[in-house]
């Protein structure tokens, strides 16, 4: 059953897209991530123009984060103040990212920057996660005790001005690091078509040293605001948001996420992290591979000849 996407101007197999949404939704529910890093490359692989895939993902990310943030806020696991500070950075980053993406498309270098971003961020983060989670698994197998988590926060975090209290997270730090972090993730979300949770979550744990229970809910809040703005900006500036595509993905994603969340309770946290690390690493390497392989067809048609 094929369906014609009005903005992407291609016909896609509707059940296949719903199934893809369900698969990514399952993974996202299981690991507590948005899954944009997985979905966007797959959509491009299925023949959807990259700008449309990247932009429509913003709508999908906002919707799926919305469905999970409500669950977290019921458990009082969202630091609203920290979320607002991160989102303030995210808003600036989204504006910058959408314009940057527009400029890169005009230069014809959007593909390169997207591929490089995937290669760099996914392999680094996937690699670090894999080392950390494998270490934990090995130590547990050998019956050793886990090394205590170093709770000492980096000194520079306290040397910066503009300090603010975050009672929920029991933090008293400068707003500069979270604002910069939010802006950075906002730019990435516009360029890579991802929510940015895979960068935000580790940074909040290891750099801001937020309590682990607060991290996922708060990052989701920042992602909703940033992705919501990115989606509107992409539609307004680039006319590349395909609501039919986003809806199809959503249909599968909602169901998949619920099953994923249930499945996650059967695994240990470090095992989940190891599996996720492998997935992240593979996607990153696959996206970067194109930069090194000799292309069969040296010429590439770019979309949007009128800019």
């Amino acid at each position: 059953m094929d369906i014609y996407l009005p903005i992407a101007e291609v016909a896609v197999n509707a059940p296949l897209i719903v199934a893809l949404g369900a698969l990514v939704g399952f993974i996202s529910g299981m690991f507590g991530i948005g899954g944009g890093f997985l979905m966007t490359p797959m959509l491009v692989f299925l023949g959807i123009p990259a700008p449309v895939a990247v932009s429509s993902m913003a709508n999908h990310v906002a919707a799926s984060s919305m469905s999970s943030v409500i669950a977290y806020s019921r458990r009082r696991a969202v630091d609203l103040r920290m979320g607002a500070v991160l989102a303030a950075g995210g808003v600036a980053g989204a504006f910058l990212g959408v314009e940057l993406f527009r400029w890169l498309r005009l230069l014809g270098q959007a593909d390169l920057v997207v591929a490089l971003s995937y290669l760099l961020f996914l392999t680094v983060i996937g690699g670090l996660m894999l080392i950390e989670s494998l270490g934990t698994i090995l130590r547990r197998r050998r019956g050793e005790t886990q090394p205590p988590r170093r709770d000492r926060r980096p000194v520079w975090l306290y040397g910066l001005p503009l300090k603010m209290r975050f009672p929920r997270s029991r933090l008293y730090i400068s707003v500069i690091p979270p604002v910069l972090l939010g802006a950075f993730v906002g730019i990435l979300s516009a360029i890579m078509g991802v929510g940015g949770g895979f960068i935000l979550v580790p940074a909040m744990i290891y750099v801001l040293r937020m309590p682990a229970g607060m991290v996922v809910g708060t990052s989701l809040l920042q992602i909703i605001i940033t992705a919501g703005l990115t989606g509107v900006l992409q539609a307004g500036r680039n006319q590349t948001v395909d609501i039919v595509l986003a809806t199809l993905l959503l249909l599968g994603g909602i169901v998949g996420a619920q099953f994923g969340a249930r499945a996650s309770s059967r695994f240990r946290a470090e095992e989940l992290r190891a599996i996720l690390a492998l997935i992240v690493l593979m996607v990153g390497l696959r996206m970067g591979l194109g930069l090194f392989l000799t292309p069969e067809e040296p010429f590439v048609l770019l979309s949007g000849a009128n800019g």
Binding site: M66, S67, I243
Partner: peptide, 14 residues
């Protein structure tokens, strides 16, 4: 489009 997406996400969680 964004309002629709967020509403769908909220409905799903409900």
């Amino acid at each position: 489009a964004m309002a629709f997406a967020m509403l769908a996400g909220w409905a799903a969680s409900a």
